[in-house]
Each structure stands twice: as structure tokens, then as C-alpha cells.
Design a protein around this nucleic acid. Structure first.
Lengths: 344, 344
DNA sequence: TCTGGTTTCGATAACGTTCTCGCTACTATT
DNA sequence: AATAGTAGCGAGAACGTTATCGAAACCAGA
């Protein structure tokens, strides 16, 4: 129950002019004299006027708001993406509404369906790893609501997508392991349904094949460090132990490093580990983690840019943007034995 | 330029009844027969009707949106708080608009000032560490806009606040260090202007005094691990080296641990380190970091709850809520020398 | 059959803004 | 001096919804 705010009418009354003139003076300079324009702007500032977005949105059917739907923000990648989105949006005078699905397909559907179509101009989404039915998104596309996916993207829905180059990143990671002298390489993969899981897996397998190496195991599971612990455990209880691990993301790799350390296995020297993301913690863990850096901030900015283009021009063609990744070499893929002398 | 959406009018026309009846059927059950109500609801679903929030907001002068203004989200504490806010808001059918200030007072002022008062029902804010002038917030309070601060709160503005018990937390941390046998304790403090900096500093000093110990140094700086590295460096280049560090937050403590490790100083055994936050990385770093756990998620939920109370009842009294912290003991404050035998 | 009270619904005005039209008054042209 | 053109402004409709008021329709009681 906030106090009544000053409206355009109040300004008009105070100045003895019509609301139409005030409205015009507020935006463009044409069709209104420079002096009345200045007069209006001054008294508007004096009366502490703020435009009512409900009213403008109603008549112009545009709200200058975009919705971001994302599984979570409590990790480096997602929070950085959001930061990029937020910054670009603010520059373009758009406001962002945040929706967390908590990786639940139920919540995702609910949020997308109940999201009043009239309250936002467009959507930026990253799907949960459970989502298999995309009809709630397809309904949006049919209603001509601008929609852009990033990172985790469905293949069926016909919209613009912005991702990192997962395939090449995985190739780089695997190549690096091989170059460092590891040959029994296993892959801790992500949830099977996800596009990025498939791309990284394919990069891994293709690179192995190129070097005529066999895979020492592929395990699909979630993204947490706990998942990493479990997976490395089953892997090391199996018949043939790997001498290197390529993990689908850094957090899972942290679990691996921790597990190996606890079991007295030297990370790097005995078993190489490489992740994907470049989470800041990868510099803090010891040994520090080699990884494939994702351009998270840029992905945020870029996907927001594409969305706003779609909003402002409905003829803007569908984009398939893939940003480059970068190999970051740290201790977890270094065989220090070389410098250590005749230890083996 | 989305397709025209179905409005309440379309439903009225399709059913041959008035818009008023449709509107009533849509919300309450009184003043409309059960059959027409059902009829309306069914055709509304069939025609894929979504309410236009601009229109409802215009007439009801309430938007069911709240704004969250926060320095950043790329760290554990803030992203977890936001998660709590978001979840509670969604439960109560409120939508969250996110604004990042990037710890810039300029951006904070800009965002708060330009934020159309009419586009949100209330604000949840955490100030930057630069902010010294709070007039942009005071203007909001004068306009009767519901406003709640969390974590970093200004003392001058008369609003509800939700924080963790920083003072007691700092006391617990210092007590723990003393109980573990450390006596030359230094404090790496936060930016001096912040309330939480002062509270934690006071808890540290009071506890020292209680045990008749002297402070081995207090350095104010930012919250990053880089700040931690620099501060420990100046501390160890000084005349009297501390044997324990209480850091205002975990990230800064990470910098300390890393610096000590690089300089061959045994963390825990030679120099105890304790942080504040319970960032997940504190379990990953080695040695693992003792810390004071903050109820970040609960702070998010609680502050959102208080805000919504204020929105729904303007007579709701101003709250001063302080949530409990918890001591988490890990390796960085353990003197293993005891078990190690006659090493010293 | 009439009265009084419900129930159910419709007309219409608001909310704050923009947009379309048209009117006035001024300037320039001949 | 008459006309055409244009700059500047006002009146009113429109956007989609809710709120107020009143009218019809129904029911029960006498």
C-alpha cells in the first residue's frame, strides 16, 4: 500500500497542459517545443515522477523484461552466466526476472506454463537434466514468444541456442591426457539425456579412436562432487583400472581428486585428472586441477544479446552460436616422476 | 511482436456473457454460479488464456514482483541467499527481479533510482561495501516502498533487517582458536564501512580481552582470496608473527592457506586458520578449513518472508532478525603435533 | 398474488499511459 | 493580403483488467 505516486496527469495539471503533451515531452523531442519539453522534464524531476510500467506495458504490449529459467545458481558456471545476462540486459535497459527450477522437470514445466506470457518479452532458458518432454517450450514458440536456450539445449525445439564448443573442448581434454602420456583413459559423463553430455562423450570417443586407444570406461551420473566420488570408486573396484580421468565438469573432478588422495593414489603422477568449466576452486584444490575453461560470462552476454535481437526484430534469423573453450594445464595432469629421478 | 493473446474479452464473447462475469469467475467463487464458473474456467483453459499482469497491476496497483539488489552472485553465500529468496517468493506467488550492483555504489544508486517504483511491490537489498550515502534508499522508505536489508545492512535507514549473528559468530571463532592453544591471533577484517565488519571485529576483540590476550594485528581489506594473500604477506613481514588467523570470510582464508602452504608453513600445526561462511570449497582445500557456518539459505527465505509481510500489511512492525551461526571444526585449526610424537 | 430478500449477472468507470486525429496559430510564399 | 503549409498542442479512444453499482431473476413466506 504505497503512497500515491505522481503520474503524468499530475504534471499536466500542475503545468496547465494536456497529458498528451507531457507524454510526448517525456520521450521524443518532435511535436513539442523545446521550452515546454524542458518545463515538463524539470517539473517531472521536481515531482519525483517515475513511469508506470504497467500502463506503458499495457498500451505498448512490451514490458522490457526477460525471464531467465535456470536449474540453479549455486555454482560457478551458472552464476557467471547470469552475471553476463544481467549486465547486458541492464545496458540495453531490460530487466531480468529469475526463475530457479532446481533441476526438477516438474518445476520447470510449472514455471514456464504459469509464466504469464504478457509479463515478459522473452525467455532465456537452460533445461534441467530431467527434461525429456519439451512441449511447454514448444507452446511458447508457437505463441511467437522469443526464446533462446543456452548451455543445456534441447535439439527438438526450433530456437536460437548459445553454447560452448563442447565437442572440441572434450577433444582438447582427451588429446592433452594422451600427450601427457596417459593411455588408459576413462570418462565420467553427465546425465545421458543432455546434449552437452553427448557432445563431450563424442569428443572423448573420437579422440581415443583417432589414437587407436580403447576407452577404460564411461559412467553417466550427475554433476556433483559426490557423484565423482562414487564413480571413481566403482571404476577402481573394476577389473581394469584407468590411469586418467576426463570428467564432464570440475565439481565431479573435485570428488575424484579427493577420493584418490584419500586412497593414497598420487594425482597427476599415477592418475591424471582433467575437468571442464574452470571453476575457481580448481586453482585451490591440491593438486590443482587441469580443465577446459568455458566462456561462461560471454555465454551469458551473447545469449542475452541474441534474445533481445529476436525481441526487437521478429524476422531475426535463428542462431546457432558456439563459443570457444580453452585448455588450462595445471598440476593434476603432470607426471612429476620425470623430474623426481629413478623413483620407478 | 508476439501473436495476440486471448483476453478476458474473447472468452466473454465466445460464451456470450459479460467480461465482468468472466473476471469474477476467474478469481472468487462468490457472486457467480458454479456452472458458469466451470464453463469459464474450461474455455479459458481451452483458449489458452493467460492473465495480463500489466492490466491487473494497473488497476490493483500491485505487481507481485519483488526486486533483489545484491553486489554479486558468483559466490556461495550470495547465490545461496538468492536461492532461498527465490523459493519462498515462488511459493507465495511472487516473482523475483534480479539486479547486480557489482559492488559499485554508483550502479547501486542508479539501479535503485531508476527502478520504477510502480514496477515492484518491494525491495530486498544487500548494500555494496562502498556505499556511504543511503539517500537513494531513504527516498524509497519515504515513498512507503517496503524495503528489507540482509547481510550487509546500513544502520541509518529505518527498515527491517535480516542478518546472521556476526558478533557471536566471531566470538565463537576466536574462542575456538584460543581453546586450540593459539594465542597470537590476528584478524583479517572486511571493508571498514560495513556493519558486519564491525560486528565480527568487535566479537574478536571482546573475546581476546576476555582472555587477556593482545591482538596480533587487524587488517581491513576486500573479500577475495587475493586480499587474503596480500594481508597474510604483510602480516608475516611484520615484527611479530601471529600463530593464528581469523578471517572475516572463507574466500579470504583460502588465500591465507594457499600462501602459508606455498611458504612451507604448516597450516594448523604452526598457524591456525579459521574462516566465516562455510563455503563448500572449505571442505575441498587442504588442509580443510574450520569456519563459522552462516545460514545463507534461511537468511534468503526469512528476509523474503519479512518483505512479503510488509507488502501485505503496511502496519507490520519493523523487524531486527538475527539468525544463529555454527562452529565447524576442520583441519586448519588442529595441532596434529600432539599425535605426531616428539617432532618438536 | 404480492412483498422482500437473495443470487447472479451486466454496464460502466476507473487505473496510467500512448496513439490517432484534428484543431489552432504561426510562418512562408505568392 | 490571401493562401498553404507546418509546428505545437488537446481531446478522446484504446490497452486488459477489476470494482462499483444496480438490474434482473429467482425464491420463500404470507
Amino acid at each position: 500500500m504505497t503512497k500515491r505516486l505522481t503520474t503524468i496527469k499530475d504534471i499536466a495539471k500542475a503545468l496547465g497542459i494536456s497529458v498528451a503533451t507531457v507524454s510526448r515531452a517525456m520521450r521524443d523531442t518532435y511535436d513539442v517545443s523545446a521550452e515546454t519539453r524542458k518545463l515538463v522534464l524539470d517539473t517531472a524531476a521536481k515531482m519525483n515522477y517515475r513511469p508506470n510500467f504497467n500502463a506503458t506495458g499495457l498500451v505498448k504490449s512490451g514490458t522490457h523484461k526477460i525471464a531467465v529459467i535456470i536449474p540453479a545458481i549455486t555454482n560457478y558456471y551458472f552464476s557467471t552466466v547470469i552475471t553476463g545476462i544481467q549486465e547486458y540486459a541492464l545496458e540495453q535497459n531490460y530487466q531480468v526476472m529469475l526463475y530457479l527450477t532446481n533441476d526438477s522437470a516438474y518445476w520447470e514445466t510449472k514455471v514456464v506454463r504459469e509464466l504469464s506470457l504478457s509479463s515478459v518479452d522473452g525467455l532465456l532458458a537452460c533445461i534441467t537434466y530431467e527434461t525429456t518432454d519439451f512441449s511447454h517450450f514448444e507452446e511458447l514458440v508457437e505463441a511467437d514468444m522469443p526464446l533462446v536456450f543456452f548451455d543445456r539445449v534441447p535439439e527438438s525445439v526450433k530456437t536460437s541456442v548459445v553454447v560452448q564448443d563442447d565437442y572440441t573442448g572434450a577433444c582438447m581434454a582427451t588429446e592433452h591426457l594422451i600427450a601427457q602420456g596417459y593411455s588408459k583413459i576413462a570418462h565420467l559423463a553427465g546425465p545421458p539425456g543432455l546434449n552437452l553430455t553427448q557432445q563431450r562423450l563424442r569428443g572423448y570417443l573420437d579422440t581415443l579412436k583417432k589414437h587407436r586407444l580403447e576407452s577404460y570406461g564411461v559412467i553417466h551420473s550427475g554433476f556433483s562432487d559426490e557423484n565423482g566420488r562414487q564413480d571413481i570408486n566403482t571404476l577402481f573396484n573394476g577389473a581394469s583400472r584407468p590411469d586418467a580421468i576426463f570428467s564432464v565438469n570440475d565439481r565431479k573432478a573435485f570428488g575424484v581428486v579427493l577420493w584418490l588422495r584419500e586412497h593414497g593414489i598420487l594425482v597427476g603422477e599415477e592418475v591424471g585428472v582433467i575437468g571442464f568449466t574452470n571453476d575457481p576452486t580448481s586453482k585451490i584444490i591440491s593438486p590443482s586441477l587441469s580443465t577446459i575453461a568455458e566462456p561462461a560470462y560471454q555465454i551469458g552476454r551473447k545469449s542475452c544479446e541474441v534474445l533481445i535481437r529476436h525481441i526487437q526484430k521478429q524476422s531475426y534469423p535463428i542462431q546457432q552460436i558456439s563459443l570457444l573453450t580453452e585448455l588450462i594445464v595445471r598440476e593434476s595432469t603432470q607426471r612429476k616422476a620425470v623430474g623426481k629421478g629413478a623413483d620407478t
